[in-house]
């Protein structure tokens, strides 16, 4: 059951990340999406891939996104 909830969470958070107006929030949602995706990878028996997805998708790339966003708006909203 939990795995189905995760699938739903991934789809929903992907949509939310796109619809969300505030870019900081949308990146936080993206982090959540990446992390749930890593969990799904684990449920689908791909442990190696889950490790990479968890570290790259849920930690490093959102960090780069946040830095890029900071550099583009200098901490303010558009």
């Amino acid at each position: 059951m939990f795995d189905y909830i995760l699938l739903f969470a991934v789809a929903l958070s992907a949509l939310m990340a796109i619809i969300q107006e505030n870019l900081y929030k949308s990146i936080i949602i993206l982090t959540f999406e990446s992390f749930s995706l890593a969990a799904i990878f684990h449920f689908l028996l791909a442990t190696d891939v889950a490790a990479v997805q968890a570290i790259l998708g849920a930690a490093l790339l959102p960090g780069l996104f946040i830095v890029a966003l900071y550099k583009t708006t200098q901490g303010r909203d558009e």
Partner: peptide, 21 residues
Amino acid sequence: SPGGGFPGGAVIATGYFLTVV
């Protein structure tokens, strides 16, 4: 064990990135 060059390198880079931020 699960892992290898890519996740390991990415974890180290994340540590660096954390301190830089």
